[in-house]
Amino acid sequence: MDAALIWEWVIKSLFIILFMTAGFAYVTLLERRVLARMQVRIGPNRAGPFGLLQPVADGVKLIFKEELIPAYADKFVFVLAPVLTVIPALIITAVVPWGPQVMLFGRPVPLYLVDLNIGVLYIVAVTSISVYGIALAGWSSNNKYATMGGLRATAQMISYELALGLAMLAPVMMAGSMSMVDVVESQRTLPFIVLQPVAFLIYFMSSLAEINRAPFDMPEAEQELTAGYHTEYSGMKFALFFMAEYIKMIAVAMIGSTLFLGGYAWPLPPEWLGGFAGPINLLAKVLVWLFVIIWLRATLPRIRYDRLMFYGWKVLFPVALVNIVITAVVIVLVGG
């Protein structure tokens, strides 16, 4: 293992983390602007051209806010919870490939951090531990609304994780590999959404529930629970929850684009522009995906909690199971 390779990994990891953090800042702006337009308002446009400095202003404000810890809160867990929420969000896209190999500074550099042979399983595992931060935040606040919000979020995330995992299995079966690079490479001619529309829809809906976005944003139902699990958080600790939510939006869009929409390999041939057509393919799809998520928030009302659980367990989960069985039978009959 030579030193250059280690530096390459370090730089790529830093790049991913910085990209996700910067992405978070500008997705908040995108959301505020798009929502405003849909509600016939203008949105933040004062800080910089088109309001482009608004995230900076928000960040400065949050840094200087007073941080409160409730008197009877469990202090250690209270501080730990935001960290536990952000870390899974930051590391989950480590296995998402951005493009094929390119030449940079005279050495071939693949545009992904690592090509795990269990890439999809890694994503499922990281998703499954991202529940902890939210559950612990609710519990440690020593506030009944926060605890209720935390419990609701946990229940919702556990329920939709099953359908999500099963939906992600369909592209894995089609590609015959759990490596994200193999999944993308087998979509060069035809993205899997054409062959797996049901799995795509299940992925889309259960991922919305997994990241607690409208219409499944029960943990933050402000009429019933004030702000849900982060009621007692202020300043930078609140900002970390906020950050995790938006980074998860980007991550879900990246993973979904890779699994179902052809990732970096479709529609432009990824070798164009010296290999940099790959990231363009991927990021364009991510942008559209984020727009649709925001659009849904502006359009749909929140659904009732028992309906949400009913939908997850009795509709999405069985449909995902049947989809897997049908896919398996067809693959065996047609021969993959």
Partner: peptide
Amino acid sequence: APFIAVVQISVYAGSIMVLFLFVIML
């Protein structure tokens, strides 16, 4: 054994212990 490692995280840490935590809090 990366497969076993990831399964360990997703099954034990991700599913079983979340339910434990859930019950303790509830």
